[in-house]
Each structure stands twice: as structure tokens, then as C-alpha cells.
Computed example of a mutant assay.
Amino acid sequence: MGSQQREFPFALDRRLRLTLRVERGKLVAWAVQLEWFDAEEGRWVWVARYDTAGGRPHRDRNRLGGTGKGMRPWKRKRHGFACRNSTGGSTGFSWT
């Protein structure tokens, strides 16, 4: 079945994005992401994400232009941003 994705806007510049990955009728991975619209850059930016990357549920936080305890480095991808988990691997989801 693959991945299913749905967006839930709750303000003009804020939304939640839910992604479910289903294989053979079973949920194998999920992610819930809070995003805000950056009007200066004209794109959606993720702020926080709860997901099962690395095999167990955890939270990633994004702080563009800064680092701090609990922050994850991010890298630019062709279609948006991808968070990297604590071992440096990709979360496996591509966000637009």
C-alpha cells in the first residue's frame, strides 16, 4: 500500500502533517509533523516531528540557523528538508 499522507491546517500559516507507512496491511512507520509557512521564503518549514525513525517513537525539533541541546542537524534536499536521526541516518520520509 505504501505511504499515506494527510495535512491538517489549523491556521493560515500552521499545519500538522500525518504520514503512515503501511506494508501488507500493517502499520510499519508513522510520523506527525508540525509545520509553519515561512512567508519570506515562500515555503513550509517543519518545526517539530514525532516519528518512528530508528525503530522507536521519538521527537525531532528543527531550529533553522541554530543548534542547541536536543536539536538535530538538518540538510537541504531537493524537495524540502529531511531530519537526520541521532546516528546520522535519514528518517526515511521526504517532506515537501
Rank of each mutant, 00 (worst) to 15 (best):
M1H: 11
M1N: 09
G2R: 12
S3E: 13
S3I: 15
Q4Y: 11
Q5G: 02
R6S: 05
R6E: 12
E7L: 03
E7D: 14
E7Q: 12
P9H: 06
F10W: 02
F10G: 00
F10N: 01
A11P: 01
A11T: 02
L12H: 07
L12V: 06
D13H: 15
D13R: 14
R14S: 02
L16G: 02
L16V: 08
R17W: 03
R17A: 12
R17G: 06
L18Y: 02
L18F: 01
L18H: 06
T19F: 01
R21D: 09
R21S: 11
R21G: 05
V22G: 03
E23M: 13
R24C: 02
R24Q: 15
G25D: 12
K26Y: 12
L27K: 06
L27T: 09
V28S: 07
V28Q: 04
V28G: 07
A29N: 13
A29H: 09
W30F: 15
W30D: 05
V32S: 03
V32F: 03
V32P: 00
Q33M: 07
L34P: 00
E35I: 01
F37D: 05
F37T: 11
F37H: 14
A39R: 13
E41H: 12
E41R: 14
R43M: 06
W44S: 01
W44L: 03
V45W: 12
R49Q: 14
Y50K: 07
Y50G: 14
D51H: 15
D51S: 09
T52V: 05
T52W: 12
A53S: 15
A53N: 06
R56Q: 11
R56P: 00
P57G: 13
P57A: 13
P57Q: 08
H58V: 01
D60S: 04
R61H: 04
L64S: 08
L64F: 06
G65L: 13
T67L: 04
T67D: 06
T67W: 03
G68L: 01
K69E: 05
K69Y: 08
K69G: 10
K69W: 08
G70I: 10
M71A: 04
M71L: 12
R72Y: 10
R72M: 08
P73W: 05
K75T: 04
K75V: 11
R78V: 13
H79T: 07
G80V: 02
F81Q: 05
C83P: 05
C83H: 03
C83E: 02
S86V: 11
T87E: 14
T87M: 04
T87S: 13
G88Y: 14
G88F: 10
G88P: 11
G89D: 14
T91G: 11
T91V: 08
F93Y: 10
S94M: 08
W95D: 06
W95Y: 13
